[in-house]
């Protein structure tokens, strides 16, 4: 319920939710925890925690590099869940685990769900489980976050709506993750198309880095996910770990404050 409650609360305040994506335990556990505390401090509302995988097909260059780095560090789903438990203890943010399907399959669906619950994970996103296959993880007490894309047809939108999800992850573009400029009008049409079918919170992700982008979708989306932009900051500042958390906090503040002020003014 944490995810639903948090989003409902924000919707009441007419405030855009800011969801931060960060790869678990890269560059290392302690620095990653510092980053997560900074994100919370900066006003982010939910945390999406990535699990490194050898073949991250839905991810663009920047996040893909983090997957490969994580794999080289020996990270995997089990260690990702261990780390999630540390995150749970270090912050108050509702926690969404992002993992490709194969590691979950290897762990076993029941063990995965149990370990998620024990680690304090509230929801999961599995980018290579389309709507037809999402049911494989159902009935385990985990919030399953369905994804839609601009290419999604009305029956697919309906399928996502029928799941009564905590939110729908609306992929902004035809493409993989990565910072880019967004086709604003097209995305607005698409969000309206989804909105017409469901009252579930809609969270826009992929390609978002700037406050102006957030502002553009105010009122249409209930929140945004920011991932590659944070990953770029991590890459740029990880050699100066004392500066890194502060930079992340500032970026969150910029995104969050602006959306807040836009609504108030």
């Amino acid at each position: 319920m944490e995810i639903r409650n948090r989003l409902a609360h924000l919707r009441e305040k007419e405030e855009m939710a800011l969801i931060a994506f960060i790869m678990a335990a890269v560059p290392d556990e302690d620095l990653c925890l510092d980053c997560i505390r900074a994100l919370e401090q900066g006003g982010c509302d939910l945390l999406e925690l990535g699990v490194p995988f050898t073949d991250p097909l839905a991810d663009g260059e920047v996040i893909e590099r983090f997957h490969h780095r994580g794999v080289k560090l020996g990270l995997n789903l089990k260690r990702g869940l261990d780390f999630a438990a540390r995150v749970r203890a270090a912050c108050q943010l509702p926690l969404i685990l992002f993992s490709y399907y194969n590691p979950i399959l290897q762990m076993g669906l029941d063990s995965f769900a149990r370990d998620c619950r024990e680690a304090g994970v509230n929801g999961v996103i599995v980018p290579d489980l389309p709507l037809d296959e999402l049911g494989r993880l159902a009935g385990q007490g985990l919030e399953l976050i369905p994804m839609l894309a601009p290419s999604s047809t009305l029956p697919r939108v309906q399928m996502a709506a029928d799941l009564d999800p905590a939110f729908i992850y609306c992929v902004s573009v035809r493409g993989v993750t990565g910072v880019r400029s967004l086709p604003e009008l097209e995305i607005k049409d698409y969000l309206q198309k989804v909105r017409a079918v469901t009252t579930a919170p809609l969270v826009l992700g992929f390609g978002i880095s700037q406050p102006e982008q957030v502002r553009a979708f105010q009122g249409l989306a209930d929140g945004v996910v920011i991932g590659s932009a944070l990953a770029q900051i991590i890459e740029e500042y990880e050699s100066r770990p004392a500066l890194l958390p502060g930079m992340l906090e500032k970026r969150c503040q910029a995104l969050k404050l602006l959306s807040y002020w836009e609504v108030r003014s």
């Binding site: 389309p130 296959e133 839609l148 894309a149 999604s152």
Partner: peptide, 12 residues
Amino acid sequence: GGRFVPETLIPA
């Protein structure tokens, strides 16, 4: 078998 790809690709 099946289809285990991002939802984005399903329409294609």
